[in-house]
Amino acid sequence: MSDLAFEHGEEHPPHPFLQHHFEDLGQQHEASTLGMWAFLCTEILFFGGVLLAYWVYRIMYPAAWALGAEQQNTLAGGTNTLVLIVSSLTMALAVRSAQLNNRRGTVLMLILTLIFGTMFLGIKSYEYHAHWMEGLFPGAHWHWQPKDPAISALTPKVQLFMVFYWGLTGLHALHMVIGVGLLLYILARAWRGDFHAEYYAPVEVMGLYWHFVDIVWIFLFPFLYLIPHVGAHHVG
């Protein structure tokens, strides 16, 4: 029950963005951020479920996992990691600008975040396209075989790896697409001048979400692209 809004003095008419069931903007702000944190807890368990399955099979089939990771374009994945980290910085700066009543700064930083987010999705689709062409999509379309026929027995397990690859990156990309959509909405509102030092909760909540999606990728990149070969033998 924060009295934050009242500390700033005189009697206002209710703020245009204060929803009817909240006492004041402070309460509304705290509710939105707590809501997003709670949602992110759900998200962690959601990704956690697949990651658990991923690890079970990674331990069961280390050679196939290493071979699967070898099929990934590490340069593209690495670039994407960098792009996302920078986008998190611009997102944080957007929140900062909103807190400082800097409308121009907020808009600029949101646009940059949007650009980086789109860039990530672009690079990701390039990778997806390459995988599709190589027959690395699980199911009926699968036609990839290891170059060394001696290890063709690993193929079904590599396919299992690719199920996790597509599942995890696909789930992550879905979050990115939703994030980009939300960014557009926040950007439009920032453009209109909705946000200022007393009311910037939507930008902050957007930021929380964006950082979360970023952090997920920080885990996915080593899990899917950088798997060392087990033991002394080179299997690929």
């Binding site: 050679a63 290890i151 027995a153 299997v235």
Partner: peptide, 19 residues
Amino acid sequence: LNPQAKIVKGFGPPSVMPT
């Protein structure tokens, strides 16, 4: 069923045994 899963020392990997 899955000869590649546990390969005896000196017989691979990969094992030459088919599944």
